[in-house]
C-alpha cells in the first residue's frame, strides 16, 4: 500500500499518537524533552533522563540506518514467518524497532540505510485497515 492510499478517514493507526499523515506523507512522531533535549519514541509522560515533565512532539526523519537485525523463523500465530526485524537508528538520536520489507533476508546488513514506509499491518474488528510503519532499503545518502 502506498502512502497516499492510507490517507483516508478509514485508516486506524497501529498505535495512537505514534504516526501521523500530512500532505500525503506519513511520519513517525516522538517526543523531545524541553529541559535536556532527550528524544524518545514513543514519548514518555516524564523524561527518563532529567525527570522534566514538558516534552514536545517531534517528527522523526524518514530515514535511518540498521543498528541490528534478525530473521525471525519462529513466532506467535499472528505473524507469518519468516520476517525480518531491525532496530533502526535515527538522526534524532533515537532507536526504533520495525519489520524490514522489500529486501531478501540474506541481504540485510548492519549500517544499511533504510526509509520508513507506512502499510496496512492488520484489520481492526470493524474490518478497517490498521496502518503501521515498516522499513525498506533506501539509496545510499
Amino acid at each position: 500500500m502506498s502512502e497516499t492510499e492510507v490517507v483516508s478517514e478509514s485508516y486506524v493507526p497501529f498505535r495512537p499518537g505514534l504516526l501521523r499523515f500530512e500532505g500525503g506523507r506519513g511520519v513517525l512522531v516522538g517526543g523531545r524533552c524541553r529541559g535536556c533535549g532527550a528524544v524518545y519514541f514513543p514519548a514518555p509522560e516524564v523524561c527518563a533522563r532529567c525527570q522534566g515533565e514538558d516534552l514536545d512532539r517531534v517528527d522523526l526523519s524518514g530515514r535511518g540506518a540498521v543498528y541490528t537485525y534478525t530473521v525471525v523463523r519462529q513466532s506467535t500465530p499472528e505473524f507469518r514467518t519468516p520476517y525480518v526485524l531491525v532496530y533502526v537508528d535515527f538522526p534524532e538520536g533515537v532507536r526504533v524497532l520495525g519489520q524490514l520489507v522489500g529486501c531478501e533476508p540474506e541481504a540485510v546488513r548492519v549500517g544499511m540505510p533504510v526509509e520508513v514506509v507506512f502499510e496496512e499491518v492488520a484489520k481492526d474488528p470493524q474490518g478497517r485497515p490498521v496502518v503501521g510503519w515498516r522499513f525498506q532499503p533506501a539509496e545510499e545518502a
Binding site: 498505535r15 525471525v72 519462529q74 513466532s75 505473524f79 520476517y83 526485524l85 524497532l97 520495525g98
Partner: peptide, 8 residues
C-alpha cells in the same frame, strides 16, 4: 505487537 519475540 511489532513481532518482537524473546529469541529475536
Amino acid at each position: 505487537a511489532l513481532g518482537l519475540t524473546m529469541p529475536a
